[in-house]
């Protein structure tokens, strides 16, 4: 009788281990790599990819869309910082933003997990002014007038608009450059080159 009970217990424990392990595997959330996608498009959709090194004749208005895809597994409070640079200025990279460059504007948005958010970005090159061969721009970004100074470019060529993605970090209570990766923040940025004709 004792032997029979022991057999029962051993078989039961073995099967219970197998079944509970299978249950744990089934009900556990599947691992997924978290990432945030960042893109800039014109409003004509796929036909209207923003061309590289376009020429703008002031006054000219451009309507673009910034798209932010959130696949981080949680809601994100994002901020896009818009900067102006030229071919000789500092570029952002995967760890640091282009803080030495002046900010032209900021756009805030809450983006749900799994959502791709479209943000309108309307900007106008209203006019240019030339000082000692260097061209400076008078811009209007999302309704607000800004000057490109101190960023200028010789003969108005090789300007670039830089878009940096920042996310809010609740533990520090401030926005951090990039989005939270597995081990550290992952810096994300875009740039569009353009020139101006007088």
């Amino acid at each position: 009788m004792k032997h029979r009970l022991a057999t029962y217990l051993v078989v039961f424990m073995s099967l219970a281990t197998i079944f509970t392990s299978a249950t744990f595997y089934i009900i556990s959330p599947k691992p997924a790599q978290s990432y945030m996608g960042f893109g800039v498009y014109s409003q004509r959709g796929l036909q209207g990819y923003v061309p590289g090194n376009m020429t703008i004749t002031p006054p000219q208005t451009l309507n673009w869309n910034l798209t932010v895809a959130n696949r981080t597994g949680r809601e994100q409070f994002i901020m896009v910082i818009v900067r102006l640079g030229n071919s000789t200025t500092f570029s952002p990279n995967v760890t640091s933003p282009a803080t030495p460059l002046p900010e032209l504007g900021r756009i805030d948005r809450f983006v749900s997990d799994g959502e791709t958010s479209n943000i309108n970005f309307t900007w106008t090159v209203e006019s240019t002014n030339q000082t000692g061969g260097v061209v400076f721009l008078n811009l209007r970004i999302n309704g607000q007038s800004v000057s490109s100074a101190p960023i200028g470019s010789v003969s108005g060529s090789n300007f670039r608009l830089i878009f940096e993605l920042w996310t809010f970090d609740p533990s520090s209570g401030s926005f951090q450059y990039g989005y939270p990766g597995e081990f550290a923040q992952i810096g994300t940025w875009l740039q569009v080159w353009f020139s101006t004709s007088a």
């Binding site: 029962y8 039961f12 099967l15 219970a16 079944f19 509970t20 299978a22 249950t23």
Partner: peptide, 11 residues
């Protein structure tokens, strides 16, 4: 619970 009950019946 289902896993444990299944283990009992399987035994």
């Amino acid at each position: 619970t289902i896993a444990i009950v299944a283990a009992v019946f399987s035994t």
